[in-house]
Computed example of a mutant assay.
Amino acid sequence: MMDKLDAALRFNQEALGLRARRQEVLAANIANADTPDYKARDLDFGGELRRALEQGRAGNGLALATTAASHVHGGSTFATDAGLLYRVPSQSSLDGNTVEMNAERVEFADNALRYEAGVTVISAKIKSLLAAMQQ
């Protein structure tokens, strides 16, 4: 039963986790808009979602790499730079900073809107699953 619930919600769980991670990255870009030599980062949402679904990590975080059979197999939930890309600026700055505030604000608002839409979708899915269980 739990396997079916996990399968029903897995895509949305991964998508929301990646949206939250992207929001953190975009917020860091905005916070460092005046930091000399700061390089703006972003997340390839589609590629990361595809990779997460193929790996089957379902919220476990990152899989640990092991080099011997006796190593502990586990996961980690801390943030990492894996999957982050550098953003190419359309206009360079003299101090080496690649953050473009207008672009960051647009991406931040778009990602926030998509996160809220994801929450709405998963909430509706949970309600429909609860209704089906009650019958």
Rank of each mutant, 00 (worst) to 15 (best):
S90A: 15
A68I: 09
D95S: 01
T66F: 08
I30F: 05
D44A: 07
R21Y: 13
R51Q: 02
G75Y: 14
Q13R: 13
R105T: 11
N97L: 05
N12Q: 14
E14M: 04
R57K: 13
T35W: 09
R57F: 14
F78Q: 14
R41K: 13
R21Q: 10
Q91N: 06
R21P: 09
P36Y: 00
A58Y: 14
V88F: 00
L43K: 01
F78M: 11
S123L: 04
M1K: 14
F45N: 07
Q13H: 14
L18A: 05
S128F: 03
G46S: 14
L43T: 00
A82T: 15
Q91M: 11
G61S: 00
V106L: 09
E14W: 02
E116H: 10
E54D: 04
S93L: 08
E107D: 07
N12I: 13
D42W: 06
A8Q: 00
G83M: 03
V106K: 10
A131T: 09
N97W: 02
A69E: 11
Q23S: 10
D34P: 04
N32F: 01
T80I: 07
V25M: 08
F11D: 11
D34Q: 08
D42E: 15
R10G: 12
M133R: 05
F108E: 06
G75P: 12
S92V: 15
Q55I: 04
F11P: 07
Y115S: 05
Q23F: 13
A63Y: 03
L16R: 01
Q135T: 15
H71K: 08
E104D: 04
F11G: 13
E48I: 11
G83N: 05
V72T: 07
R114G: 12
E24Y: 11
R19D: 01
S92I: 11
N102S: 12
A7F: 12
L18Q: 03
T98N: 02
N111S: 05
K4D: 10
F108P: 01
R87K: 11
R51S: 05
L130C: 13
S128V: 09
A28G: 12
V119W: 06
G96L: 01
R41P: 02
S128Y: 06
D6T: 15
L130E: 07
V88L: 06
R114I: 13
I122V: 13
A27F: 09
A40V: 02
Y86I: 15
A124D: 03
L130H: 07
T120W: 10
D34I: 03
E104W: 00
A7P: 04
R19K: 04
R19I: 02
S70C: 00
A27V: 06
D6G: 10
G118E: 04
A65D: 13
V72I: 13
T77I: 12
M101C: 07
F108S: 06
E107R: 05
D3K: 15
D81I: 15
E14L: 05
N111W: 02
